[in-house]
Simulated assay, not measured.
Amino acid sequence: MTDPNAREDPPAEHPDTHPGLVGRAAESEALADAVRRLIVLCTATTAPAEATMAAARGLNAIADALERHVPDPPLPKTLLHDPADGQADFGTRMPFDTVIGRHNPLALPLDLALEPPKAVLTGTFTRPYEGPPGCVHGAVLAASFDLVFAAANVIARLPGPTARLEIVYRRPTALGVPCRFEGEVESQDGRRVRTVGRLVQGDRVTVEATGDFVFLDRAAIARMAERLR
């Protein structure tokens, strides 16, 4: 007979869980979701001055409490070591990414899927990501292409930093309409990698992009990251 008071064991940690999330991943995601909600409200609320200031004071008190738990030096945002299962699980290895990070409230976040040889990003942008009225900010779209291209390069086993990113805005990209970013490696010339892609809303291409990347193996990328820390 099952004991109704028995507590279930928590789910096992993924072997590549970011060290800053061990034992607190669900709580960290809940915190990021709460801050995302605040970001939306900051761009929409017309609360009275007194209520606005009271909220600011309360949030600053919360920030003060959290700030006491920031390590020095800070932990890296991205895991660069070889994954335990041999697969590139971007969501697990980039939990604080600006585009797909579930634990970064700046991220929508977009959902990344690998459909070799393509990488695909999907999501629906909301008001905090607005540029022109009713449209997604061009800089947000550029960041999304940079991420989906990086994933496409990993699929092709050609990772490396961005050297050039060209964005061609064919037509406005509307807020509140599902987006699909696609990226695929087009060619390689020595260490130079060219990756191309597009953004589709419905049946219309709104943006096209081309990126040039410098192929580096994982060890070289890790050394570059260490120099810049």
Rank of each mutant, 00 (worst) to 15 (best):
A151N: 05
R191F: 15
H137E: 11
A143N: 14
R164M: 11
V200H: 01
V136P: 00
V148E: 03
R204N: 00
D146Y: 00
P132W: 14
T173H: 09
R191T: 15
M224L: 14
V207W: 11
V185C: 01
R192L: 15
E184L: 05
P133M: 10
V193A: 05
L199V: 04
F145V: 08
L199K: 00
C135Y: 10
F181R: 03
P133E: 10
T206H: 11
L141K: 06
F181H: 03
E182Q: 02
G211I: 14
D212A: 12
L147G: 03
T210D: 06
A139H: 12
A151R: 05
A163C: 08
G134E: 07
D203P: 04
Q188P: 00
R127L: 13
I155T: 10
M224S: 08
G211S: 12
G197W: 04
R194D: 05
G197Y: 04
H137T: 09
R127H: 13
D212P: 03
C179S: 09
G211A: 12
V196W: 02
G202K: 01
V185H: 00
D203A: 06
A225D: 10
R127C: 09
I155W: 10
A222P: 00
F149S: 01
Q201F: 01
R194S: 06
A225V: 06
Q188N: 06
A151S: 07
F125C: 02
T210K: 12
F215Y: 15
R227N: 14
V214Y: 06
V154R: 15
F125A: 02
G202C: 05
F181N: 01
R223I: 13
V148I: 09
G138M: 13
P159W: 03
V185L: 05
R227F: 15
Y169M: 07
I167V: 13
P133S: 12
R223M: 08
E130C: 03
A152D: 04
V185R: 00
S144W: 05
V214N: 03
V200Q: 00
E182L: 03
C179P: 01
A152R: 00
P128Y: 14
T195H: 07
G183T: 06
T206D: 11
M224G: 02
V140D: 11
G176E: 05
M224K: 11
D146I: 05
A152I: 10
T206C: 15
S187T: 12
T173A: 15
Q188E: 10
L216Y: 14
F215K: 14
L175K: 04
I167W: 08
V196D: 00
R218Q: 13
I155R: 11
E166N: 09
T173L: 12
D189T: 09
F181I: 06
L165M: 12
L147A: 08
E182N: 00
H137V: 10
P159V: 01
E186R: 15
G211K: 08
A219L: 09
H137Y: 13
L165H: 04
